[in-house]
Design a protein around this nucleic acid. Sequence first.
RNA 1: GGCUGAGUGGCAGAGUGGUUAUGCAGCGGCCUGCAAAGCCGUGGACCUCGGUUCGACUCCGGGCUCAGCCUCCA
Length: 462
Amino acid sequence: MLKLFNTLTRRKEKFVPIEPGKVRMYVCGMTVYDLCHLGHARVLVVFDVIVRHLRALGYEVTYVRNITDIDDKIILRARKNGETIESLTERYIAAMHEDADALGVLRPDFEPRATESMDDILKMIGELLDKGYAYQGENGDIYYSVSRFEHYGQLSGKKLEDLRAGARVDVDEDKRDSLDFVLWKAAKPGEPAWPSPWGEGRPGWHIECSAMSTECLGAHFDIHGGGMDLQFPHHENEIAQSEAATGEHFVNYWIHNGFVQVDKEKMSKSLGNFFTVREVLARYQPEEVRYFILASHYRSPLNYSDDNLDKARGALQRLYTALRGSSPDAGAGPVAEYVERFDAAMNDDFNTPEALAVLFDLARAINRARDAGDPQLDALVATLRQLGGRLGLLQSDPDVYLRGETSDGDDSDDAIIDDLVAQRQAARERRDWAEADRIRDLLAGQGIELEDTAEGTRWRRI
RNA sequence: GGCUGAGUGGCAGAGUGGUUAUGCAGCGGCCUGCAAAGCCGUGGACCUCGGUUCGACUCCGGGCUCAGCCUCCA
């Protein structure tokens, strides 16, 4: 029985899908005006693992992750670069897909874009106007009237009065209430615009997600996710828009992941303390980044540091070392005891650190079985691979992983290493320990560690 | 100021009303030409003050500290 923490109720709840056996899930994706940073990577990986787990439980999942490809920052950036909005967004969409693929993130079933969803957006704004939840200001913008929506604040636990009291928003004369937000922005000269019954313009940020999710998944669906920072106002506004427009309950379970931090501070564009996925992948293997993300619970803060990435590397080396030397498809079935523990961890609000602990217990059991010549070895190895796969980990060939280089790794060439290892082996055979140790130290200086085993000498990059 | 969430051993990071998380690092041993990897063993923790309880790191209340949201943000 899967339990998950629902932001709406701030409690862990049993997951019951609207339609038995099926899950409809929407996650807020990226605004494509720059490269993905580690914060984006966390959203991608966390919800990827959630989808994988739901599928492993047998649910037929429809996973939608949108792309925001029109907004103020995109317009500004394109203008600054002297390029069209389309060329800018296409480039960063491609970059995002590369990053996501590298991290082993499965593609969503649908990836709608705001600019391709104008009909749905206009339709929903029209409904909100018809029902009196929206109004047009003097400047032509259409606003959502927050005070008309009875449950405003339910997701973020805020009251309208508190929000007004603490408001840091500039007072906009055009709005009836400072908390009202834009549904449709009237175009100013030179701005990209789409035709609408209320004049040329572009959608506000919040309406696109309401429109796209409703279009792809219906007015009422199971799970809506995104980063913590979207809880307010973005998701609050989505609820207000969707429920007002459709008259139906919008989403049953809201899932929000915690932030990536640097020096105990949120990693963000505005603070400038971010690391792009590419920067990190230049120094660490993609799987190490993925492990780093999953080593913390998805709702906890995740502190970025080289030390923590190094620990992820060390941890994966241990797991892959356990897998080494065993045939990948030995045909042995998984060992129920471990699968059950893994499932229990994942069913408890996607507790990936606990699930990883099961993997390490499995690694120890494998090493032990190997030493003892236990016939259960193949089954244990198969189990570790299978459970690792449930997290999108441990699917590489162990030797390839252990010898793996990062994209700006050292220049040492595998053939040269193999040659030195052979020379050292020859020295060892003539019991020339001094020469053998000299070669070993030489390689160690390049980050190559040797292991002498009964089957010969193995090497890996550390 | 309002509203959230968090404070665990050297580090990272789970969890639990009374019993080993896990990984890295440390220490002792086995193995090894020596190492490495692996195995066996081992030390070390629950911010603070009250309360509830036979018993709390775990529940409740106060305090302190940190982070986040209230403005674009994953």
